[in-house]
Amino acid sequence: MIIAKFIFNARHRRAWSNPERKIQTLESFAQTEIDAGESILSALPYVDNPRLRKHLERHAKDELEHGYLFSAQAQKLRKLQPNSSSIYKKPDKLYNLSRFKTSTELNSHDFFSGENYEKLGEITYVAMLNIAEAKAEKVFSKHHQLLHDDPETFKIFERILKDERYHVSYTGKFLTEWTNQGKTKQVKKALSFAKKARLLNSIKRKSSKVGEKIGYLILYILYFTAIIPFAFASKISRTKKGWQYPVKVSQDLKQGHSQY
């Protein structure tokens, strides 16, 4: 258990291991917070419940403030290292949120947007926020504990943790309220979806990777078996050298429809 805890904490410790990495981590955190804040802000026009809207507005402003705090601290540390090359070095894979930007389906920065609020509905949206903030609180606590030697950054995390606790609290209160209003099933379903989504997502991601590896293996085997006669045929067929003259085709939409 202790060993597992040590290994688990090691990756968080790495994030603060040297000044350059520290700057990268802070900037990565700043970006996440700012994106989350802007995302929640974009949901506000869709929220009918005025009390919820007020809390979400404060939540969004908190996230933006966290982003500012992280970013300002990163800037401060950067000034101490004017020749730092970290601005163009990619952060650790774990902390590099831009790796998800390669796929529009996995854009981690837009999840709390207005569009998704409309799609998921208020209960599921709040449940997702609740689970996310609870996890954030846990993770930030871990980082907080690792920063005793850096009082400034330690203080920033202290302030952020306070806000995260409020975020967990108000979202939890709304869920309790809806449960008391007889929407127990919906709340339970929403929380279950929120919890499973994390796990499911992780399983689906991993199985996608496994599928890729299996695919490569099948093709590799095929290459050295069924492909051989076609490989010989290709070696016999002449490669085209010199000028080739495209076949004149009709220059109308019929040609445009063709994928060949």
């Binding site: 994030a15 981690s108 996310a132 996890k135 997502n201 689906k204 996608s208 599928g211 099948i218 095929l222």
Partner: peptide
């Protein structure tokens, strides 16, 4: 026939990731 399998293997689901799980 491999195409069908590869299409499934490449389809990444539209499930929101939990931002903070990254950390």
């Amino acid at each position: 026939p491999l195409s069908f399998f590869f299409i499934l293997a490449q389809a990444v689901p539209i499930v929101a990731p939990f931002v903070y799980t990254l950390f």
